Amino acid sequence: MSQPPLKPVLQKPPGYKDPNATAVQPGFRPPPRKRVLPPSFHPKKTKSSCCRVCCCCFCIFFFILFLLIIICGAVFYLWFDPKLPSFHVQSFRISRFNVTKKPDGTYLDATTTARIEVKNPNGKMTYYYGHTEVDVSIGEGGDETELGTKTVHDFSLGKQKTTSLKVETKASNKLVVDGVGKRLLTRYRSKTLPLNVEARTKVGVGVAGLKIGMVGVTVKCDGITMKQLDGGDMPKCVINTLKWLNIR
């Protein structure tokens, strides 16, 4: 069987452009596409690394400083064995106590002399005291009556030394409530009158010839009676320091 004759291939005319072909300019290559890296391959920022290193150094420095302070404090405590000073009311005398009722009110006249014993129990430390203001009052609760304030000048207390502070106060024509005045006079005669002494001062420490800063201290001796003192009792006072620490 004879094959059909082949169709002649048509020749494209000169200047013919195939519309389906992509035009590529001679000598031009498209720019290569930039490869997208995963986040784990991105370079870390130098600024963040520097801040982290600085924070670590800062924390290490303060940790070492805190550790040194603890070690120095422990050595100081073991070597010097520091003890707080002690305060006692040694004696309290009322040389005059008159309650007078007048038409315009009740008046109190009182003269007192108190002695406060201050002791330094340390064998390697000296205590320094600034100006000390001592308030004396009588009564308790809401019926306290001020009898006066005395200022004691600076003084120091050597190793294992004891001193006595003399505090004299005087109240003249002090107006009091009628019922309070009568109650104070009754308790004075029975020697059950509450006596209150409060001292405000600053205390510093001397160690090996060096004087270490002053700390505010308030000493309170409340509710003492003449009957206690006449019986030989020397009530110990309470030391308040740093506004929250109470020490007997």
Rank of each mutant, 00 (worst) to 15 (best):
S2K: 10
K7D: 07
P8N: 11
P8Y: 04
P8G: 08
L10E: 13
K12G: 01
Y16W: 15
K17G: 02
D18F: 04
A23Q: 06
F28L: 13
P32A: 13
P32D: 13
L37R: 12
P39K: 10
P39V: 10
F41R: 14
H42M: 12
K45V: 07
K45E: 15
K47H: 13
R52H: 12
C56M: 15
C57A: 15
F61Y: 15
F66E: 13
L68S: 01
L68G: 02
I69G: 01
I70C: 12
C72V: 13
C72H: 09
C72T: 04
C72N: 07
C72S: 10
V75M: 12
F76G: 09
F87H: 04
F87W: 14
H88P: 00
H88V: 05
V89L: 15
S91R: 04
S95I: 11
S95W: 09
S95C: 06
N98Y: 13
N98A: 14
T100L: 13
T100D: 15
K101Y: 08
P103Q: 14
P103V: 12
G105D: 13
G105R: 12
T106D: 13
T106S: 10
L108Q: 06
D109M: 11
T112H: 11
A114F: 06
A114D: 04
I116T: 12
E117K: 13
E117R: 11
K119F: 13
K119G: 05
N120K: 11
N122Q: 14
G123S: 15
G123D: 15
T132I: 08
D135Y: 10
G139R: 07
G141T: 10
G142S: 14
G142Y: 14
T145Q: 09
G148F: 08
S156I: 05
K159F: 06
Q160K: 12
T163A: 08
S164W: 08
L165R: 03
A171P: 00
A171R: 00
K174I: 07
K174H: 08
V176R: 01
V177N: 10
D178K: 06
G179R: 08
K182R: 10
R183H: 08
R183W: 09
L184F: 05
L184R: 03
T186E: 14
R187C: 05
Y188L: 05
R189A: 09
L193A: 05
V197M: 05
E198M: 08
A199E: 06
A199L: 08
A199V: 03
T201V: 03
T201L: 07
K202W: 07
V207L: 08
V217M: 06
T218V: 07
V219K: 00
K220R: 09
G223W: 02
G223M: 02
I224A: 01
T225E: 03
M226A: 06
G231P: 00
D233G: 00
M234Y: 03
P235D: 04
P235K: 02
C237W: 00
C237S: 03
T241H: 02
L245P: 00
L245K: 02
I247Q: 02
R248P: 02
